[in-house]
């Protein structure tokens, strides 16, 4: 173990991350303008176009920041809360930008950009820690597999949550003039379902990978550690959501609410459980 940490480089990485925050804020403004104009003019797309260019640039700059953090620490950049948060934001934005090529998911641009922005802001202002050596329990290739898939699942759940929110707004009949420009409820529900589906599979994998790692590191595959409990709860809630989508009378609003509860549990697991609950997964570094 001859790792030399590079805190100055980490500071440069922090600069990039902060710059990305600025770009995301600009993108968010553009998307907001777009929504405001869309109400009156369905052909409006200038702001949106610029917004996606800025969002792309912000993602790239964030990517450089995350990469430099990894170089500074000489390992994968997701071993404490600050790093989870910036890697998570990068993952959400990347998944979102790729999804744009597959499905029309422009409508949640404000939500996704806003969410990534808040995540990075929390990371930089609350969670920042200087680069540290990895404790022995984390020195495992499972850190790469288990965590990266968990972050990925979170990304998919987050985008789905955006669709759930717009679904509920539209279903409630609020802001008709604007919401009429959005796809119909069926379509919103469908896209949310697709993202949650991928998220659920990824989350299941994280759970299994975590159990395998726990067996190596803590000599039991499952011990109801607080983080394990919440991983389980999230899995069960999303399993409930998938069942709801196949149960008469439970699709639509109820399923959307379940999906949001699931995502709320994901956020709770990352913030409250990490910071305030006692457990073995005490890697916040704070």
């Amino acid at each position: 173990m001859n790792i030399v940490l590079n805190e100055p480089l980490s500071q440069i990485s922090l600069l990039f991350v902060s710059a990305a925050m600025g770009l995301l804020a600009v993108a968010l403004l553009m998307f907001a303008f777009q929504l405001a104009r869309l109400k009156d003019d369905p052909t409006e797309s200038r702001f949106e176009r610029y917004g996606f260019w800025v969002l792309g640039a912000g993602t790239l700059v964030l990517g450089i920041g995350v990469f430099l953090r990894g170089v500074a620490a000489q390992r994968v950049p997701w071993a404490n809360m600050y790093e989870f948060a910036i890697s998570g934001a990068l993952m959400i934005l990347t998944i979102y930008l790729i999804s744009l090529r597959v499905k029309d998911v422009r409508y949640v641009a404000t939500f996704v950009t806003g969410f990534a922005l808040v995540t990075i802001f929390a990371a930089v202002s609350l969670f920042y820690v200087e680069v540290k050596t990895l404790m022995p329990a984390l020195q495992s290739y499972w850190l790469v597999i288990h965590v990266v898939v968990a972050i990925m699942a979170t990304g998919f759940f987050a985008i789905a949550a955006g669709f759930h929110i717009f679904y509920l707004i539209k279903a409630a009949g609020v802001g008709r003039a604007l919401m009429d420009r959005f796809p119909d409820l069926r379509q919103l529900e469908r896209v949310a379902y697709r993202f949650n589906m991928v998220g659920f599979v990824a989350w299941s994998f994280t759970l299994i990978a975590g159990a395998i790692w726990a067996e190596r590191a803590w000599h039991r595959y499952w011990g109801w550690d607080t983080k394990e409990v919440w991983t389980f709860i999230i899995w069960v809630v999303y399993a409930g959501y998938l069942h709801a989508m196949a149960t008469r009378g439970w699709t639509g609003k109820r399923a959307a609410v379940l999906g949001l509860i699931g995502f709320g549990a994901v956020i709770f697991n990352f913030t409250i459980v990490n910071l305030f609950f006692k457990g073995l997964h005490v890697y916040s570094g704070l």
């Binding site: 173990m1 790792i3 030399v4 940490l5 540290k132 050596t133 990895l134 404790m135 022995p136 020195q139």
Partner: peptide, 11 residues
């Protein structure tokens, strides 16, 4: 090697 981590066990 790293001043911020002196005394931190790595293995």
């Amino acid at each position: 090697r790293n001043p911020a981590n002196l005394g931190q066990p790595v293995d």
